[in-house]
Design a protein around this nucleic acid. Structure first.
Lengths: 150, 150
DNA sequence: AGCATATGCGTGTAATTACACCTATGCGTG
DNA sequence: CACGCATAGGTGTAATTACACGCATATGCT
């Protein structure tokens, strides 16, 4: 039935998740340190590679605060990997991956691959698959940050 | 068979996990904002309530860098919720929850409970249970930060 | 006792994260 | 066209996170 009672059945889901995130992030970052970038940055590059978009759209897809994304993109822009230009609407910023960014992404792929494979080998392909399914299911059910802040 | 191949079967597990963490954290933080604290701080208080310990032990349990924990405890100490005293070994810091900290933890419990119940009601008790199992399994299998940095 | 090493923390630095608030720009209506 | 509101970002502030390095203390060996 999985009826929601007024008393929690489990410990803090958020705390457990954060702990796992810390561990995973350390693994990926360790591998990516060979390329002097972090998983978060690798993800940003990989996402930027999906096409030029306004900052807001980009942030919405990642479900990240615009200011967060703006700040996280800054070091990547400083390295010349992404370009932040003024869009048609003079208020908006258009984010795109530069040629150097594409090269960097390509160069970092093997390191990311190693990290991902390490995780898959430790947890097993099955284990990772189930974890992904749980994550996707949760993402599909949980309320999105609503896009707009009232 | 779940054999680990040299090519990843899935997308970036870390990125997906981080996204879910962002969403969950927002939900908990929204509820806990009534108490002017964040989930991370609530977790710290709850963990501190388990007994007085040296900073290192505390950090090891949370698998958090000592410097991270040190900095995260600072605002809690500033509020008088935790005490950071010098241990038997003059180099070590002994962390303990103060009486005010216990009161704060008690006062914040209902807010945390609401957040946890909201998550359980959205994902279903079953769903959260399965998610927890996957998380615990992953935590059990993945390498711990080794405690010591060589 | 004295010195080398090991251990426990703090600081510097930097990125990740988000909220509240401000600025600039765009748009619609009178 | 001008006023008012809505929208896109940026800034201030603050917490979370971790690594490298440095300082102080403890410990072990001679």
């Amino acid at each position: 039935m999985s009826t929601a009672s007024s008393v929690p059945t489990f410990g803090c889901t958020c705390a457990r998740l954060r702990k796992l995130t810390r561990r995973l992030t350390r693994i990926y970052d360790a591998h990516l340190s060979a390329q002097a970038i972090k998983v978060t940055q690798y993800s940003l590059l990989a996402n930027a590679a999906r096409g030029e978009r306004a900052l807001s759209e980009f942030a919405a897809e990642l479900e990240m605060d615009r200011s967060t994304l703006s700040r996280n993109l800054a070091p990547l822009a400083a390295q010349g990997w992404v370009s932040i230009s003024i869009g048609a609407d003079a208020r908006s910023r258009s984010i795109s991956l530069t040629a150097a960014g594409r090269r960097k992404l390509k160069a970092a792929l093997p390191s990311w691959r190693k990290a991902q494979c390490e995780v898959e080998s430790i947890l097993g392909t099955e284990g990772v698959g189930e974890l992904h399914r749980k994550i996707e299911r949760a993402l599909a059910a949980l309320p999105v940050p609503s896009g707009k802040r009232a």
